[in-house]
Simulated assay, not measured.
Amino acid sequence: MRWENVYVAGLGAYLPREAVKADDAVAAGLYDAGEHEANGIREVRIAGEGEAPAEMAAAAGRQAVQRSGHAPEDFGLVLHACCAHQGQDFWTPASFVQREAGAGTGAAIEIRQGSNGGPAALELAASWITSRPDAPAALITTGDSFKLPYFNRWTTDDQQIYGDGAGAVVLSTRGGFAKLRSTASVGDPSLEPIYRGDDAWNDAPFYNGKPGDMRARKHAYLMQNPNGYEEAIERIGRNFGGVLHRALTDADTTLPDTQWFVHANVGQTVADWGFYGQLGLDPKQTTYEWGKDYGHMGAGDQLIGLNHLIETGRPKPGDLIVTVGAGIGFMWTVAVLEVVDVPQW
């Protein structure tokens, strides 16, 4: 989708102060040494008391709203994307974020699209504000923390470790420091069983009192599908390549003509295969080295990474930023941004 008058007016992030080094987790027997060597993530942030995911998202949202210059009445939409438990059961964290961030009285909706939650929400919000002239701004937030006993950040999944944090972006039709040139999304539900596994349906979360085990679900899928691994890799590569090409084409550019690339803080093996090997990217044009000190922050890696990139002051007017997301389900979203000004913040 080519966008003509959609801008990024504000960004924000909240990262807990407490950090745990992966080396220390290995020494404590919490994390496998071989996996640590392969994955390359150095440390993660750990949310403490008073840092529930929705509270972190609200803090990031307040920062993005303040930086945007938009008044509360300008916001017609709040989207909150997340993966993990938000701090309360039977509750609406998007409405909490809306109230705490001062983002108006429009629609407030929760997005559950795994690690693609932030990018997917970005595209949805762009569609919303362009179709509603009386609602020129939308706030998108993410917030996740991964804690025992529900989730083990070191062992629940493979090829990545999970850190806590939150991100936010304000989209506007009135202007901003970066223009949204294009977005594209594609889904492939044939891959949905990979993260569902073969367990019977559960009656409630945390039904067996054990942390989630996404490794076992993937193993169960592969046991039922002898060629499943090769087929999944082929589909993932084809879908990602296709959606990336579509977003770049709609933005009237090519990957070599872009200056910055923001992807999820996945393990080194995944990053090498998915981004640096296939696309020929230079790691210096990404936020990945920085991301190795934060790990995979659920739905928020891309928004938090964009915030970090802009705060460094490295992107200049005219630079193009590509950000990509992939979420279990599966769904991929790519956005292309053009920097038009360097914000004072």
Rank of each mutant, 00 (worst) to 15 (best):
L11E: 01
Y288F: 14
A107S: 15
P226S: 04
L255C: 02
A125D: 02
G212I: 13
D158A: 13
D89T: 13
I46F: 06
E234N: 08
F90R: 12
T183S: 09
G10L: 04
D341S: 13
A101W: 11
Y14D: 13
K292V: 06
E51C: 08
G209R: 12
A251S: 07
A184L: 04
W345Q: 08
S182W: 05
V65Q: 01
L248W: 01
R181K: 10
L77E: 02
F240M: 15
L306H: 03
G40I: 01
P149M: 12
I321S: 00
L337P: 03
G167T: 06
G267S: 05
G318I: 08
A13F: 05
E49W: 08
P149D: 05
D144R: 00
P72M: 14
Q302P: 14
R246Y: 03
Q98M: 11
H36Y: 10
A271Q: 05
R99C: 14
G300C: 09
E35S: 14
C83A: 10
V65R: 01
W332I: 00
L337G: 02
G104E: 06
W128M: 14
G87S: 15
W201Q: 06
Q86L: 10
E230F: 15
G165F: 09
A121D: 01
T183Y: 01
L306E: 02
A52Y: 10
V243H: 00
D157G: 05
Q302L: 09
E110P: 09
E338F: 10
N39T: 10
G228Y: 06
Y229R: 14
F240K: 13
A13R: 12
G104C: 07
V6C: 09
G277Y: 02
Y150W: 15
V78R: 00
V20L: 12
T105R: 15
P193L: 08
P53H: 07
A13V: 11
R235K: 15
S95P: 05
A251H: 06
V169G: 02
A59D: 08
A271C: 05
A137N: 04
A166P: 04
A232C: 14
D272C: 07
R215I: 14
M223H: 14
Q88G: 08
D157P: 09
D250T: 00
G242W: 02
P119Y: 04
R215L: 08
V20D: 11
L222K: 03
N202A: 14
P136S: 04
A120C: 12
D164N: 10
E100H: 15
I321D: 01
L279P: 02
I41R: 01
Q268F: 08
M223Y: 07
N307R: 08
D144N: 10
P256M: 10
A107I: 15
A38M: 12
I236V: 15
V97R: 03
M223A: 12
Q285M: 11
H70P: 12
I41P: 01
S182H: 02
L279R: 04
E37P: 11
I46H: 04
R112N: 06
K284I: 07
V169P: 01
L255P: 00
G295K: 03
